[in-house]
Simulated assay, not measured.
Amino acid sequence: MDLGWLVAPFTVGLLGSVHCVGMCGGIVAALSQVPPAREVRAFPVPVTVAGAPAGAAAPLALHMAARTLSYNAGRIGSYAVAGAIAGGAIGGVRTLAQTAAWQQGAFVLANLMLVALGLYLAGLWQGAARIESLGMPLWRRIQPLTNRIGPMGTTPRMFVLGALWGWLPCGMVYSMLLTAMLAGSPVRSALTMAAFGLGTLPTLLAAGMMGTRLRPILQRRGLRLAGGLMVTAFGVLGLLRAFAGHHVAWLEAICIGGAA
């Protein structure tokens, strides 16, 4: 199977991951540590963190990495599930409206959302943040479950927390969900969201391992501006491809598009 089409969502996740540090980097850093048992209050829910088990043989760094990876595996898994749901839902619509005009319109809309996302990440326009309110009704139902998980002393519990946290309203995730809808099937849509989530992993893994030391660096204005403008460029190239018919190999690889 040719997976070259996953380059675009992965790169968008990589470039936009500075935003993820602001959204959930704090909780990743807090939960990946192994301090004495105490309650850590991290936006938007308080979470109880357990200390390391007595006589644990594994090094502290290994504990931190395992907990961080477990949390992110749950989060990325939720993205993939959301992608599969979105892909399945839009599949019925495409069956009813299997026209080139519909596909072209959806393709243009996805790239316009990518432009809006890039401007949002760069701090130049906050329009993409408004769609986060669409997910608040669902999040209000999921949020109370995060309080029932118990002490975060084990990687399975970290995985469950990440799976729940993956449904936190996020303009960047919602923008990518629109792209995932164009993938052509629930499986391809799930892979699109998984690739996007994997793109965010390096930064969040580093944030978990380094704690709060990395956040000031990633939140620098210049870094956010550069990442946001690069995401915007992806959307602009996609629009050029849509309207001007540029079917060049390298452009096909980096642009957001529907199923082949």
Rank of each mutant, 00 (worst) to 15 (best):
I76S: 02
Q98H: 14
A56H: 12
V108S: 08
I76G: 03
L119F: 14
V108I: 15
A101P: 13
G123M: 07
I85Y: 06
E132N: 02
P59F: 09
W102K: 05
A57Y: 05
A56N: 09
L117V: 13
E132M: 04
I142G: 01
S133C: 06
R130L: 10
Y79H: 04
R141F: 05
G74Q: 01
R140L: 09
L121N: 14
L138S: 00
T99I: 08
P151W: 01
L145E: 02
A84G: 08
G118M: 11
A65H: 04
R148V: 03
G118R: 11
L138H: 00
H63N: 08
M136A: 13
Q143T: 03
P59S: 12
N111T: 12
A86Y: 08
M136L: 13
G77K: 02
G77I: 09
I149E: 00
R75S: 01
I90K: 03
A80I: 01
T99C: 09
G87P: 07
L114W: 09
A129P: 04
R141C: 01
R94F: 13
A116Y: 12
G118V: 10
A73L: 10
S133Y: 14
P59N: 10
G135S: 05
S133M: 10
G105P: 11
G105Q: 12
G118N: 09
G74P: 03
A66I: 05
L96C: 05
A116I: 15
A58N: 06
G92Q: 06
R130F: 05
A110S: 14
A66Y: 05
R148G: 02
A73D: 01
G135D: 03
G55E: 12
R94V: 12
A58Q: 14
A128N: 07
L112E: 13
L121S: 10
A61G: 08
L62V: 15
R75T: 02
A65K: 03
V93C: 04
R94L: 14
G135W: 02
M136D: 10
I149V: 01
L117N: 13
I149P: 00
L134D: 06
G127P: 02
T68M: 00
G83H: 03
G87T: 08
G77S: 00
G127K: 10
A82R: 09
Q143A: 12
G123T: 06
L96D: 07
A89Q: 04
G83N: 06
